[in-house]
Simulated scan of single mutants.
Amino acid sequence: PAIKNGQGLVRKKSFIRLHTSENGELLFGQCAGSGKTPYECSVDFISPDNPVFRCTCPSRQFPCKHTLGLLYAYVEGQAFTPAPVPEDISSKREKAEKREENKAKQAAGGAESKPKKVNKSALKKKINAQLEGLDLLEKLVLSLIRGGLSTIDSKTLKTVQEHVKQMGNYYLSGAQTQLRRFALLLGKGENREESYTYAMEQLTRLHAFIKKARVYLTTRAEDPELALDHESTIDEWLGHAWQLSELKEYGLVKESVELLQLAFYSYDDPARQELVDL
């Protein structure tokens, strides 16, 4: 659809401006959209084998119809006037170049790749906040278990949803996801009884996490230099996003390997608020 729509933009003469950089590495312009302000779109060939598509439109398609239309306008011989590279694109190019330099330095692993220093003061504040969040979560979970799932009404569900929001403030994004999953299970109206088994499993999972996380965080508070636990999922539960440099440090990165894809599955996970690809 994006290809067809991109061609349609050229036929409708939706492009207000068409430009190219002096060296021909960048195509950029403006395309009329549904709003008052035209979309700024560009295709950057600074790395010829890996063109970069950029557009200010809200589309989730990549590349979007505007950048594809820009390419069609170019190959169809429409007039592209030479113009200086826009400042925002120059800035993005510089940032991309720095990222590549940093990647090269990390890959080299030489003297320039210094170990990351632990900000003990910031870590202590974060751990204290997480422990406080666990106390709040535990009170809620125990209250739900004592009351029984059948007594949960719209008011209780609203309380659970308020706690879901609060977990983010306590740096407990993993717990936030699992508590949101619990709320979704019990928010199904008439079919709620069918979800009781899964909801109870979810509460059990949350309770086990609270106990394990409290011990783990207390240990980390006593020893800020303690390495992350890469052999379990506790750090993901606590909201840690693993960096490639960390995975390399633990010997969990393999290079130049072949992967065989046996299946592909995509689904929307409302608890994680993400589209998941497996």
Results as ranks from 00 to 15, higher is better:
residue 40 E to T: 14
residue 42 S to M: 11
residue 45 F to T: 01
residue 45 F to W: 12
residue 46 I to D: 07
residue 50 N to H: 15
residue 50 N to D: 09
residue 50 N to Q: 12
residue 55 C to R: 08
residue 55 C to I: 05
residue 55 C to D: 00
residue 56 T to L: 02
residue 57 C to V: 08
residue 60 R to P: 08
residue 60 R to S: 12
residue 61 Q to E: 13
residue 62 F to T: 06
residue 63 P to C: 01
residue 64 C to G: 08
residue 66 H to Y: 07
residue 67 T to M: 03
residue 67 T to H: 07
residue 67 T to C: 06
residue 67 T to E: 06
residue 69 G to P: 04
residue 69 G to W: 08
residue 70 L to V: 02
residue 71 L to S: 01
residue 72 Y to G: 03
residue 72 Y to I: 02
residue 73 A to R: 03
residue 73 A to T: 00
residue 74 Y to M: 04
residue 76 E to Q: 10
residue 76 E to H: 09
residue 76 E to D: 10
residue 76 E to M: 06
residue 77 G to E: 02
residue 79 A to V: 15
residue 79 A to T: 15
residue 80 F to P: 02
residue 82 P to G: 02
residue 84 P to M: 06
residue 84 P to H: 08
residue 87 E to L: 14
residue 88 D to F: 15
residue 90 S to K: 15
residue 91 S to K: 15
residue 91 S to T: 13
residue 91 S to D: 10
residue 92 K to D: 03
residue 93 R to H: 00
residue 93 R to Q: 01
residue 93 R to D: 02
residue 95 K to L: 09
residue 95 K to V: 11
residue 96 A to K: 02
residue 96 A to E: 06
residue 96 A to F: 12
residue 96 A to S: 08
residue 96 A to C: 09
residue 98 K to V: 10
residue 98 K to E: 06
residue 98 K to L: 11
residue 98 K to M: 09
residue 99 R to T: 08
residue 99 R to K: 11
residue 100 E to C: 11
residue 100 E to N: 11
residue 101 E to W: 14
residue 101 E to L: 14
residue 102 N to C: 11
residue 103 K to W: 14
residue 103 K to E: 00
residue 103 K to C: 06
residue 104 A to C: 03
residue 104 A to W: 12
residue 105 K to Q: 03
residue 106 Q to G: 00
residue 108 A to Q: 09
residue 108 A to M: 09
residue 108 A to F: 15
residue 108 A to H: 10
residue 108 A to G: 01
residue 110 G to P: 02
residue 110 G to T: 03
residue 110 G to V: 06
residue 111 A to H: 12
residue 111 A to C: 09
residue 112 E to N: 01
residue 113 S to M: 13
residue 114 K to V: 12
residue 115 P to A: 02
residue 116 K to T: 13
residue 117 K to I: 13
residue 119 N to W: 12
residue 120 K to E: 03
residue 120 K to M: 08
residue 120 K to N: 06
residue 120 K to R: 12
residue 121 S to Q: 15
residue 122 A to V: 12
residue 122 A to Q: 09
residue 122 A to Y: 12
residue 123 L to Y: 10
residue 123 L to V: 05
residue 123 L to M: 10
residue 124 K to D: 02
residue 124 K to I: 11
residue 124 K to M: 10
